[in-house]
Structure formats: C-alpha cells, structure tokens
Amino acid sequence: MIETAINFALFTMLVVTAIAAARIRHLFAVVMLSGAFSLLSALLLVTLDAVDVAFTEAAVGAGISTVLMLGTLALTSRREKIPSHRPTIPLIVVLVTGAAIIYGTLDMPNFGSANSPAQTGVAAEYIERSPHEIGVPNIVTAILASYRGYDTLGETGVVFTAGVGVLMLISGLRTRRRREDEEDDDEAEEAG
C-alpha cells in the first residue's frame, strides 16, 4: 500500500519531468531536467528492488550522460532550433507505437506473478545453484560474469569500441576547430 503510493508519486514526477523536458527550449535546462529524470527513474528502480539496474542508472544516467550531454552542448549551440515542420506526423507515429506497446503489455503476466515465464524458466535453477557454484552473493552478478561470461565480454567489447569511436570523433573535431581558430587569428593579425 505504502509502496504503491510511493511508486505512484515517483511515476507522476517522472512523467511531469519528461513533459517539461520536452517543452523547454533552453538546452542547459533540458540537461538539468534529464539529470533529475534519471535520478527519479533510478529511485523507481530501487523501489522495484532492481538494485543492480538502479546502480547502472545512477552511474550512467545521472553521472556520465549528464557530463556527455554537456560536452555535446559545448560543441553545438545552446538553444534548440524551432522546428520548421509541424509535429503532427511524428505525434501520430509515437501514439501508434505507444498504443502497440501498451497492447503488448496486456498479455504480460502480472507484476511479481509467480508463474510468469521469467520465474518458471531457468531462474529457479540459477537461484538454487549460484550460491555454491559461484560463491558470489549477488545472483545477477554471478549470472552476468560467470554463466554468461562470454556474452558479457562481447557486450563490453561493443561498448568499449563505441566509446573509442566517440572519443576519436570528438578529438578530431577539436583539433580541426583549433586549426581554424589559428587561421582566423592569423588573418586578423594580417588585417590589423
């Protein structure tokens, strides 16, 4: 009962934050709002007992992505451009997709239901075996790092490659910019 009320309050704040972020044109303000958004969603994940996901959300959502977005803002402009086209078609697309997703959830088992596919599959096996096979107290960690070790290694590789790619892009842009600046300075000196 109490938890439901807290979840409800957090969800309401989350939706309001999302709407405000969509409406504000000043991009710094949007970055701030998205920081608050990820704090809120991480809180929701904590109330749902998904502590691991909450950890990730805190580190990635509230921490790194805020810094990354600020870095992006430093390279681009600070104000959102007024869109030149009308938002009708995107709105329709979004509404249809959302309706499809909601329709899809109708078939899903109830939250926390004991005979959902997630519970009846390999989950019981993992819960039973991981404490003495792996010896790590957190079962999710045991699964990710041990039972699905190669899978996780592949994922990490992908993320690492993406990070390196972004770094190369950004650093290339900066040196190019600096060169342009210097050329500008030279021209200015010659003119002066």
Partner: peptide
C-alpha cells in the same frame, strides 16, 4: 540498499562539479 545511496552521493557531487 545504502550502497546505492552512497553511490548517488558520489555521482551527484561529480555531476554538479562537472556542470
């Protein structure tokens, strides 16, 4: 769950200083 609270305190500080 206090570990998460601790992590948040850290992240929040780093985030604010970065901003």
């Amino acid at each position: 769950f206090l570990d998460i609270a601790l992590l948040y305190a850290l992240i929040n500080f780093v985030g604010t200083i970065a901003i």
